[in-house]
Structures are given as C-alpha cells and as structure tokens.
Nucleic acid binder design. Structure first.
Lengths: 196, 196
DNA sequence: CGAGTCGTTGAACGGAATCAATCGTCGTGG
DNA sequence: CCACGACGATTGATTCCGTTCAACGACTCG
C-alpha cells in the first residue's frame, strides 16, 4: 500500500502556482469550475452565504489541504474561496484530472485510496472535536498523530495552527500542554512531542 | 450530476444484513478484512487502543454511515468495531467491490464522486464543531442541513442523535432550540424545523 | 529600530456541562 | 388490559472550565 499523494497522482495536471493576498478570492460562487487547488501555504476559506447573509463556512483549508474537489462533478463552483492570510496554492486543471481518472484505472483506484484516507482522517478529527475536555482532546489528537513506533509527534507549523486543528484557543493549548508535561504525560523538545 | 448512493453503487456486492447486540464486535483489529459495512440502524464505534490502553475513538458510525472503507486497501482491519447499541449493518463483499471498481470506470468515477461528497460533508461538520457557542453551532448546522428552497430541515432520528452530531449535550440542544424558537429564528412543527 | 507575531502566563467571566427531576410515550410481559 | 420499566423530551440549579482580555518577553523581518 504505497501512500500516493494528491500531488504525485495528478502531477501532470498541475498548471501553475498562484499567490493570493489576504482577502483575495481564488474563485467565487457561480464561476465556471476549471481547476482544483491545493493549499501550499496560508489559509483559504470556503464560504457560502445564506439568504439572510449569514456566512456558512464550509472548510478552512490550510497547508496541504486540497480545495474544491467537489467541482470535479459540477460545472460551476458552489461557494467562494477567500484567502484568509497571504497564501499560495497549486492549480490543477480539472479536465486533465478527469482525463487521467477516465483513462487510468490504477490512478482511479489510487484516487479512491486517497479519498478513503482523507475520510478516515476527517472522521478521526471529528471525534477529536467531539471531546469537551481540552486535556482529553489534546491527548487524543496527539495519539492520532503520533508515529506508532516512537510515540512521537512532530508539530508541523505553529502551535497556533495546531490549536485551530483542535478547535481550542491557543492559550488553552499552551496551558494544557504545560500541564501534560508537568504530569509527565508528554515531553517536549522543540517541535517534537513524545507521549508516554 | 445524479447522486448515487453507496448502496446503489455496490448493490451487487451486498451479501447480507447482520444484527448486533450491544457490545458485540463487528470485527476486531487484525481480523482479515473481507467486508465493508453500512450502518442501517444503531451505532457502531471504531476504536483503537494505545499501548497504555487508552481508547482512541476513530469514528462513531450511525445510521447511513459506511464503515471500514479503509480496509479496501488493507488485508486486515486496523481497529475494533463495536456496537454501542443494538444495531443492524449491511455487509458488502470487499473482493466484489474491488472487482466492480477495476472493471467499471463509470462506477469508479461515481465512487470518487461519492467520496468527494462525503469529504465535503465531513469538512462542513468539522466547521460546525469548531464553533463554541451552542447557538451559533446549531444555526450553522441547520443552515447546512436545510433544503435551500424551503429553508426547512427534517430531523432524522431523535433530538439526542442530532445532539451527538452537533457534539453538544441534548439538554443544551433543547434549550438552544427553545430559545431560537422564542426569538422567532426557527419554527418547529414535529420533526420539521423551518428557518426564518 | 519598531512593527508584527509567536509563545506563555494571569485573572475574571460566561456559558455549556452536569446533576436532578418531571412528564409522556412506547413496548413488554404477566 | 394494565402495570411496569425504559427512554426521549424538557426544564431548573449549580458547578466547572475554556474563553476572553490583558500583559510581557523573545524573535523575525523590513
């Protein structure tokens, strides 16, 4: 089971890399859907609006997240994609991707495997966010991320981003990590967290 | 874009329907993975255990949720599946599904579309759970579920199950719905909720 | 050098969880 | 048929803990 990445799978469909300033739209609702995207850096938020104008946030895509796969099966985008911070995204031509999937059963299967992994990760993250206690939430998150061999987690990005993943404030995360370390449950050395 | 369901897509792979009593295991870690499942009723929880014995809940699958798709690409199951309540599940033969995907590009594509929808739903639910305020969380949930035409949501299952989806206690959900109704934001008639 | 951000800690507040109680409904078995 | 138990729906009172606001040092970058 070789873990193919989205980028490897669709490398031949990649057309360009785009930089976005804060607040810039990658696409807007109703635009013809020509590309899929992958966030290389920053944060792009997918937002719909209710008739009363309430923002309905569909997804906050951060580094490594793919964006707008749903547009593969739709002629137009169904929401707005706005850069929350200065961001860079890789662009993949939709037609090329569809062609790849049509012509190559192996890549189709790899794509399904990719999605299946994504679904598993999302469900796990969903369980994390179902836990109210910050302590237990952080512990489950770390256990999920940890390499089974070493029981260590390398924190990618900042602690603030990790707090966003966990859907708690960064202050609470600092405190919680400090407590866990005091208890001896974890050991921190830089961006590496070891669980015992 | 016809919305094919998992059940329609893989109808020919369905082998049986199984009933589980509370606490019964559908499969356990290490078992050879022979089937995928879909929860028809009840609740099946996927759990892994850390070396210290802490439960790591991967997914609480309820009515309509598919289970163990990841096993498509693995010879054994990687977690335990335990019925939390008396449950019934539909069983789909893994080899048949793989055959279907190999031989039929259309169905592969439909499967990818299915996953893509699932991913979108999960991400949306993830955003819901990132909201701290019960009021706003319930509102976003309702907006997401609502039929865009009628702005109405039919609550499937009990309010308690809805509370689980929202990851708030059922007491808070009752109170929140009552408040929203008092404010005129929503109107409830039986299991139907209309948004103002 | 100053602006901006991350990491970290303190104090106070607010709101969701928790515990508890009541009512209604549904199914079950004697 | 009715008593009984189980569970969902609902509301009240109290507790708890995560958020919020605030402050500070360290660091990077222009």
């Amino acid at each position: 089971m070789n873990q193919v990445s989205f980028d490897e799978l669709f490398a031949s469909a990649k057309t360009s890399v785009k930089s976005l300033v804060k607040g810039e739209f990658l696409f807007q609702k109703g635009d013809p859907s020509t590309h899929l995207y992958m966030v290389l850096d920053g944060c792009v938020r997918l937002v719909r609006y209710s008739r009363e104008g309430d923002a309905i946030i569909m997804h906050s895509a951060r580094t490594g997240d793919s964006v707008a796969e749903a547009s593969l099966f739709s002629d137009t985008y169904h929401c707005n994609a706005e850069a929350m911070t200065p961001s860079t995204v890789a662009c993949y031509d939709k037609k090329s991707i569809l062609g790849i999937l049509r012509d190559s059963p192996e890549r189709s299967m790899a794509c399904i495997a990719l999605y299946s992994r994504e679904v598993r990760n999302l469900r796990a993250l969903l369980e994390v966010r179902a836990i109210r206690s910050a302590r237990e939430r952080v512990l489950l998150y770390l256990l999920l991320q940890a390499d089974p061999q070493t029981m260590a987690v390398r924190v990618s990005g900042t602690i603030k981003e990790m707090a966003q993943d966990l859907a708690i404030t960064h202050e609470t995360l600092y405190r919680t990590l400090a407590n866990l370390e005091k208890e001896g449950k974890i050991a921190r050395t830089g961006s590496l967290i070891k669980i015992r």
